[in-house]
Amino acid sequence: MKLYNYILSPSCYKVRLMAALIGVRLELRPVDFHPGGEHRGPELMALNPAGSIPILEDGDLVLTESSAILVYLAAKAAPEWLGSGKAEEAARVQQWLSFSGRLTASLGGARLHEMLLRPGDIGAFQAQGIAALRELEAGLFEQGLRGQRFLAADRPTVADIACFPYVALAPDGGVSLDPYPAIRLWSRAIRALDGFIEMPGIHRLHELKPEPHIEPGEA
């Protein structure tokens, strides 16, 4: 499976993270998104007329929506990440997969504006981003009352992976994560998963490694 990848794209990171968590190997094809704008060039536009990344190629199959790619990877390698299939849980997975698009439009827009100087109404991006974070916070709080630590169940699903990157990177777009205790605990639970990988802007949990004992001169 080949992923057209940009190292700073949260949507590409969703795919890399999912693959890492379930042990799928991806062939990475780096795309010069910035400064080159390669995703708008002829080769990639032929593959994806929307001009967006990620793009996943697997044989004849070409997928261009990150949520669809997550579902594909999970269905092939780790179906438990799709949820149990019970009506309510299946619906919750879909609810948050759809919601993740709003995170991309709001927090993602703010991040591209503040970091890579892309155009847009930064005030609107940030206000919509805060509204989305509050919904997520409330959703996670209510899940906690039901004894569930993740968005759709007590175990992570594709919905968590779809929402995590843009949320964790909200500060890149000038949106603070300080006011959200439930999001903080959830983000921590995701970062503590076996096989978790980071991306620039999302630091790893150094506390998972014990403090090393170092003698001077050993370094």
């Binding site: 190292i7 700073l8 910035h34 970091m115 500060p171 890149d172 620039p200 802007g201 630091h203």
Partner: peptide, 9 residues
Amino acid sequence: QTIFLQDRS
């Protein structure tokens, strides 16, 4: 870019 974006935060 990876290195610099790690510094940015």
